[in-house]
């Protein structure tokens, strides 16, 4: 599927940023061609998944308040079908990391992510979740949640505005629409994530050997 065919209601494809990134993603996925039947099935699955993303009720600080605003009357993410916020990570599809993650919270966040059922997505909201933001120099703040869990969409801001979050959610939908249920890319494109995973693996190896 081409990126051009991505249909998001009342937003044109050109209006979105980062289309080149998605094109690369599709190219990678479709190397060697796609079976027609599987392609259609993929479309159906992706349609379902992209329109039914249930967020986990999770917020640590300021961005959480703006996240509440997204759920409230003005922004209303119920329009996209995202309003079924689940309190149990087992039933949620996406975790909005809204707020700073500190060293004490890091294992908890990791655990929450591990508790979620596949397919699961992560949206990092606000400067703190992306890179540590204003608390970059702090002794206790994790410098970006992508050090702990893989992130799909970054929504900048301090705190992110509700409309920015809506945009991030639409980008998330677009990304899900390009997935392939039957065929996974051999190599993840997100090199940063790969590096981090390798790093984490290495660290865990170190721990094992030291024991």
């Amino acid at each position: 599927m081409e990126v051009k065919n991505l249909r998001v209601k009342s937003m044109k494809n050109e209006d979105f940023n980062n289309n080149d990134y998605l094109e690369k993603y599709v190219e990678e996925l479709h190397k060697g061609g796609v079976n027609v039947a599987i392609g259609v099935l993929d479309d159906v699955i992706n349609w379902g998944r992209s329109h039914s993303v249930w967020p986990l009720t999770f917020a640590t600080s300021c961005c959480g308040i703006e996240f509440m605003c997204v759920g409230a009357a003005r922004a209303d993410f119920a329009r996209f079908g995202w309003e079924v916020t689940r309190n149990s990570p087992r039933q949620a599809d996406v975790i909005f990391v809204a707020g700073t993650i500190v060293y004490k919270m890091a294992p908890v966040l990791k655990r929450l992510y591990d508790q979620m059922a596949e397919p699961k997505y992560v949206i990092a909201i606000g400067g703190c979740a992306i890179s540590g933001g204003p608390f970059k120099d702090s002794y206790n703040v994790v410098q970006g949640v992508d050090k702990i869990i893989p992130v799909d969409v970054y929504v900048p801001g301090c705190p992110s505005r509700p409309n920015a979050m809506l945009y991030g959610m639409m980008q998330m939908e677009r990304k899900i629409k390009l997935e392939s249920f039957f065929k996974l890319p051999k190599k993840p494109i997100i090199t940063k994530e790969e590096e981090i995973r390798a790093q984490i693996d290495e660290e865990s190896k170190d721990v094992k050997t030291s024991k």
Binding site: I45, W47, G48, R49, S50, H51, S52, G81, D93, F181
Partner: peptide, 9 residues
């Protein structure tokens, strides 16, 4: 859409 999603979860 919810149903499709939840079936494949």
């Amino acid at each position: 859409a919810d149903m499709v999603k939840i079936l494949l979860k």
